[in-house]
Design a binder for these strands. Sequence first.
DNA 1: AATGAATGAGTTTTCATTCAT
DNA 2: TATGAATGAAAACTCATTCAT
Lengths: 215, 215, 215, 215
Amino acid sequence: MAQRAKNRPSDVQRNPEWTKAQLLEAARLEFSENGLSGARVNDIAERARVNKQLLYYYFGDKESLYVAVLKQAYEEIRAREEELNLTELPPAAAMNRFIEFTFDYLTDNRYFVALLIDENFHKARHVRGSRDLQDMHTRLRKSIGGILARGERDGVFRADIDPIELYISIASLCYFYYSNIHTLSAIFGRGLSERSEISRRRQHVIDFVNAYLKA
Amino acid sequence: MAQRAKNRPSDVQRNPEWTKAQLLEAARLEFSENGLSGARVNDIAERARVNKQLLYYYFGDKESLYVAVLKQAYEEIRAREEELNLTELPPAAAMNRFIEFTFDYLTDNRYFVALLIDENFHKARHVRGSRDLQDMHTRLRKSIGGILARGERDGVFRADIDPIELYISIASLCYFYYSNIHTLSAIFGRGLSERSEISRRRQHVIDFVNAYLKA
Amino acid sequence: MAQRAKNRPSDVQRNPEWTKAQLLEAARLEFSENGLSGARVNDIAERARVNKQLLYYYFGDKESLYVAVLKQAYEEIRAREEELNLTELPPAAAMNRFIEFTFDYLTDNRYFVALLIDENFHKARHVRGSRDLQDMHTRLRKSIGGILARGERDGVFRADIDPIELYISIASLCYFYYSNIHTLSAIFGRGLSERSEISRRRQHVIDFVNAYLKA
Amino acid sequence: MAQRAKNRPSDVQRNPEWTKAQLLEAARLEFSENGLSGARVNDIAERARVNKQLLYYYFGDKESLYVAVLKQAYEEIRAREEELNLTELPPAAAMNRFIEFTFDYLTDNRYFVALLIDENFHKARHVRGSRDLQDMHTRLRKSIGGILARGERDGVFRADIDPIELYISIASLCYFYYSNIHTLSAIFGRGLSERSEISRRRQHVIDFVNAYLKA
DNA sequence: AATGAATGAGTTTTCATTCAT
DNA sequence: TATGAATGAAAACTCATTCAT
């Protein structure tokens, strides 16, 4: 059912980095599927195909592993965002690229949506106060702010858009679809997980945001 | 700390309706704060100030109680929506009223956001297949569809807006804010739970949706 | 090997007082035989012939049970001491009665010696700060102080004996024998647990203390 | 907090004797602070600043290390006692020197008290049957017996004192104070670990024993 | 001789649920 | 209808010990 760790590289029988990476990946899946409280340490270890106690050896306890997973998840998406080199594109293209990336990243990494929301359940207790995280997002805000400024100057975007407000709206439109995909499918009797529905939604989000940007 | 049940009506020692209502309310809070797996049957009973066994007596088990809570939650919001009498308003006003209602309802009933998302964690297992629920939302779709049709006819809305797509977008903009309010506050170093931030967000959502409707 | 709980009284199938008492007694033995860290919650429950989880139901956790055991143990010995009615005896007789009681109580309740010493291992963390305990021992000090005063006045005891100092010495002579009975037996190759050795020791302690009192 | 091993001599990368000594010292502290069952192999290794596996390499297992610690502890105190050269002193002086030594040794080596008592917890399982240990204590008994004989002959001591009985009493008065110092402090609300209390106690013990010797 | 990784058995604790009254 | 006592399965976590290098 759940995806399993690849076989341990046979030439290295003891490979702490590999072990830790396996655990992190398995934990990421478990936590995103079941949340912090629903996740089972046993299952994480099994999924990672490592001895359960190594989890404690390397991460201390379940909660610390959870924190490590969260941190890694944020780092990954923000790193991927920075690779987009949005500053090199014209503002409208940059913005669309950002929207598309956000939507597509979640399509490919649905675990991330669940992870963030579960962390919210805990009132952000595990990420609150992380200097790293705040710095990461200060850069994000500046990046979006830069695109908006260029767009305004060029006359392609409306004036006075708050970058954080905009970011939250873009994120809303992308994340909510996945965070509620099953309940929405159920109540509207529609298979929102299907490829066609997803690409339809993707286009809608792009249109939706653009309507605002250019209003 | 957590809100407690009011004193049991003193003249009735045995009051099944009161007891069930207490349990439902306590469960709603517990489940929304901790999710299905994180919620504790003990805590629900304590919160409801009734004996734990009564929970089993009236609802069978934890999961059935969860289903009852979910169903009640959906019923409440949809009932409130129907009370808005949107069909009696001009389309633009009707739509704004709907947006405002959606946002404000979540502001006042944050538990609902958490509840839906937790249910999504379980792949909507508990609501999937409920005929009642689907009927309820068919009415919702028709209601929104009617407003859109009127607006298009009057020339105040753009043409060809899919009512479900639009509903999901409005919901996205409202729900996501609350479903991620703590994590967003943490990463952006901003107190999004403050009254001023909330009303600022409310206005942004209204503007955002209107830009699309009128584009 | 270990002594077992008597059968649960057949006419009462659910008897919380009985259950708690069983647990306390079983715990007293386990803790005195193995110390706090060496004791096994499983073994305590088995000894008490009750479900292991009742231990948590009634006492919260292992450590709280330990505290309850300690408190009860102190209460018991001090209560027994008060029953001696030392104030009604002439000072020399009172003192001898006290010495004999102390020695005999430990002979019959060896667990108590082990318990105190184990608690000392934990730097008295579990009893420190207990108002009850201090009050209990204030009474003890006054009682001994009273006997000493009477004895001094009557000229049968030397003057200026500090009651706490004396108490500690009496306790030393009684407790140490039992707290080290096995090691002493081993190094001196003598069976100090035998009845004859014990009564020989008892007399020695009486003589030893009296020599000081009358010096 | 806990005292740490001194830096490993830099010129020797591999130094079995040093390593073993470090382990023994660390183990002595750990065992005396926590007992056999409470001690953690991990902590011992950390304290000794050596790899945990070396503990197994040199001592086999936790329990064997415990035995080694016990043996060394007994050897040390008995060796120090023999260095007192009690036979060269007049009997009263010799006895006082012995009492003082016993008390002072424990003041400086409190771990020893805990060690013996913990071993008693285990019914002296680890020292029972050791020929070395018995020989060691046969010499001790003879030494005390010699002093007593000389004292009796000189008329400074009472007659018919059993050397083992006396030894146990002296030990009682010295050991008990330390084995119960925290609990006694707690119940009597007195800081018995303070220097002033200790020297007061020391004098009391001397007086107490002398009263008996000369009775 | 020395090291860090890995393991399995065991230990405390949690928790939904049922029993007996 | 209501209650507190009792239960068993499972969960997180600990710990001495061994493996591989």
